[in-house]
Amino acid sequence: MRSAILMTVALLCLGVVSPMRAAYAASPAIPSEASADATSADPLRSPRWGDMQKLFFAGQPVVFDARVRVSGPDIAEDSLNVPISVDASGLPNVQEVLVFADFNPILGVLRFFPTAAKPSLGLRLKLQQSSPVRAAARTADGVWHVGGLWVTATGGGCTAPSTGSGSAEWQERLNEVSARIFPRIDGGSRLRLRIIHPMDTGLAPGVPVFHIEELRLADEAGAELMRIQPYEPVAENPLFTVDLPARSGSSGRIHTSGRDNNGNLIDAWVTP
């Protein structure tokens, strides 16, 4: 364990691995007594929950909360493309939401900051094996509220190369945006957004890390509606579903902007 930690620190100093990857590499294979206690408190009874708490929420208040709803399949048909919906709209004053998977080699899936949008997001992710998929919503008082579900997966989603990386077409269509805005019965709107990108994790032999780093949604006046920070486990050609209240985005165009880790820009307008 000591040697693993020393190796991880060295890699971090060299910039070879990200903190998300390093945390996984340095984590103990056998749960400690402290993590065993954490497991008993965890509704999903994951032996990795203690490690997740130390990595993402060290020194911060955390509660399990049914108001953070995570929906998805009990059994994933495709480990490369697992549909997940997160809804923390039952909580007041949500500042940010973190989505992560306990048993993925890259733990963090994405963060999003609702700003003027509702604190809910539909997405698709990769799973390396069966794992709890969780969402943690931080409210204005600094408390993290955690919900989640177990997803059974055949595995290999994070270490397989994307299909797009083997095609010449993605180079011509890289960061191409397609989207639609739908009215909701409450007077708001729903945005469904798809971006062409291979989202390679860097874990497939000979295929470097290549993923979208940031995505920003804004109204016609430039006011931010939501900001999304995808990590490597987001599925290829990311598909996001965002709910917008009536006062921000139910009419008028939405500007989508962002970049990937190679500096390629995303810039598109979505018209109702």
Rank of each mutant, 00 (worst) to 15 (best):
P205S: 14
P205K: 06
P205Q: 12
G206F: 13
G206Q: 09
V207W: 08
V207Q: 08
V207E: 06
V209K: 14
V209I: 13
F210K: 11
F210A: 12
H211E: 13
H211N: 14
I212Y: 07
E213L: 11
E213K: 01
E214R: 02
L215G: 07
R216M: 07
R216E: 03
R216N: 03
L217A: 01
L217V: 00
L217C: 00
A218M: 06
D219W: 06
D219H: 11
E220F: 12
E220V: 14
A221D: 12
A221T: 14
A223R: 15
L225F: 01
L225K: 08
M226P: 11
M226F: 02
M226G: 08
R227F: 00
R227L: 06
I228C: 04
I228K: 05
Q229L: 15
Q229D: 15
P230M: 07
P230Q: 08
P230R: 01
Y231N: 15
P233T: 12
V234L: 10
A235S: 15
E236F: 03
N237I: 13
P238C: 01
P238N: 07
F240C: 04
F240V: 01
T241A: 06
T241L: 05
V242S: 00
V242H: 00
V242A: 00
D243T: 04
L244R: 12
P245K: 11
A246K: 15
A246Y: 12
A246F: 07
S248G: 12
G249V: 05
G249Y: 02
S251Y: 14
S251H: 15
G252W: 07
R253F: 02
I254N: 03
I254M: 02
H255W: 09
H255N: 05
H255M: 08
T256I: 15
T256W: 06
S257E: 13
S257H: 07
S257W: 01
S257L: 08
G258K: 05
G258H: 08
G258Y: 03
R259C: 07
D260K: 00
D260V: 03
D260T: 03
D260F: 00
N261P: 11
N261W: 01
N262L: 14
N262G: 13
N262P: 04
N262W: 15
G263T: 01
G263Q: 05
N264M: 08
N264F: 13
L265F: 05
I266E: 02
D267F: 02
A268L: 08
W269N: 02
P272L: 13
P272T: 10
